[in-house]
Write a protein that binds this DNA or RNA. Structure first.
Length: 271
DNA sequence: AGTGCGGCCTGTCCGC
DNA sequence: TGCGGACAGGCCGCAC
């Protein structure tokens, strides 16, 4: 599923094809995403020039003078840039056709994604207004999460995956960041020292930065039919490695369920 | 306010 | 070989 690094790589991949281009038409083949695609979106977006392609958390923002399209890829969504006449396949739900003859095509088999529209400041949109800081900015640091964590009794893994605390730490990168910080995923968030949170903020930044860099080096050609976003081949040290030896100490990596999510950790390194 | 969890979806994999 | 069922997962929104 697209996590923050994939979304950021997608943003960088599609941006050159969108920026400064006018929307010729919008084709909605299936409006049934997480929320229905607003019926008026095609008419509203048509004729608009795309002035910016931004990302906030895992939302992509296509800014125009009239308003902003808000896209989310959910778990299975992907965006590609194709010649507009390329036949749509199964699960290709939306086309944003540009004056260049290319189209931005959204595919989302599981339809957990979203395409919304707002005429106001998108950062004030209900879905975005209460989000925590971006993980790769100075607003996210150990001090902040240490403060927010006081009194929290739930597992630290749930805590750092909470979008009000920090955005963009999905299941995979939460597992990896906790491993690198040597923190046990089910430890109560409120019972972790300040210095350990400083370390966690640092490892979270590092793992996300590495993943974005990997996305850059393996950058798919977004204009190609097979330019299909997938997992980045960064080296995941614990995620998906249950039963294998820990790369640090050789103990067997364990898998458990925390907050209804698969969690991987080294029982020896992580406390 | 914090926490837990149901629900939305479909492709993939497993066991029978 | 076919088929049912479990599983995966972001994240909203509700219940406690």
């Amino acid at each position: 599923m697209p996590e923050l690094p994939e979304v950021e790589t997608t943003r960088r991949g599609i941006e050159p094809y969108l920026l400064g281009h006018r929307v010729e038409r919008v084709v909605v083949r299936d409006p049934r995403l997480r929320w229905p695609i607003p019926a008026e979106l095609p008419d509203t977006l048509r004729g608009q020039c795309i002035e910016a392609v931004e990302r906030r958390a895992k939302y992509l923002l296509l800014r125009t003078r009239a308003g902003t399209a808000i896209l989310h890829l959910g778990m299975s969504g992907s965006l590609r840039v194709l010649p507009a006449q390329t036949p749509a396949e199964r699960h290709d739900h939306v086309d944003i056709v540009l004056d260049s003859g290319l189209t931005l095509r959204l595919r989302d088999p599981r339809r957990f994604g979203a395409v919304l529209w707002t005429g106001e400041d998108p950062l004030r949109h209900p879905l975005l207004a209460k989000l925590g800081p971006e993980p790769l900015t100075d607003a996210f640091d150990g001090e902040r999460i240490y403060r927010l964590s006081r009194g929290r009794r739930g597992p630290v893994k749930n805590f750092i995956m909470d979008n009000h605390v920090v955005v963009g730490l999905g299941n995979i990168y939460a597992n990896e960041a906790l491993f690198r910080a040597r923190i046990h995923p089910s430890r109560a968030a409120g019972r972790i020292a300040r210095e350990r949170y400083a370390k966690l903020a640092e490892t979270a930044k590092t793992v996300l930065t590495e993943a974005i860099a990997a996305g850059g080096t393996t950058l798919r050609d977004f204009t190609r039919e097979d330019g299909n976003p997938g997992y980045f081949r960064i080296e995941l040290k614990v995620y998906g490695h249950a039963g294998e030896p820990c790369p640090e100490c050789g103990a067997t990596i364990r898998q458990t369920v925390i907050g209804q999510r698969s969690s991987y950790y080294c029982p020896h390194c992580q406390r």
